[in-house]
């Protein structure tokens, strides 16, 4: 299962970013292996329509779960149509904090997800 966490920098110790479409980075984490990959969000400073464009990036990377603070209505429609689960996280801290928070609250086996 692939988890995406919105971030202000390209690594696990970067601050979690509350905004989705305008997040500078998406950190993609493989729940099974723990491997992660940082994707720079080229739409972060775009004029408009950044939510759906950012959602398309997540779809292309076969993301299953998004952990972010605020997902706009357009992006929400795209993500939900693509079957991506949206988790609201607003406790601040780093990407690693957000990931650990999620794993604590969702300890179930990832099989079949």
């Amino acid at each position: 299962m692939k988890i995406c966490i919105t971030a202000q920098g390209p690594h696990l110790e970067a601050h979690h970013e509350e905004r989705f479409g305008r997040a500078p980075y998406f950190i993609l984490i493989d729940r099974e292996t723990g491997a992660f990959e940082a994707i720079e969000n080229s739409f972060a400073s775009g004029a408009g329509g950044v939510g759906p464009k950012a959602a398309q990036v997540l779809i292309a990377h076969k993301t299953n779960v998004l952990i972010s603070g605020a997902v706009g209505e357009n992006a929400r429609q795209v993500l939900s149509a693509a079957g991506i689960t949206m988790i609201t996280y607003r406790a601040g801290g780093t990407v690693r904090d957000a990931l650990e928070w999620y794993l604590r609250n969702n300890p179930g086996t990832p099989e079949g997800q």
Binding site: G48, Q56, I59, N74, A81
Partner: peptide
């Protein structure tokens, strides 16, 4: 192509946001 994010193509449908 759409730089305004108005179109999203999924396997089973196309989402179009006329506002964008």
């Amino acid at each position: 192509f759409c730089r305004y994010g108005a179109i999203t193509v999924l396997q089973d449908r196309i989402l179009f946001f006329s506002d964008l």
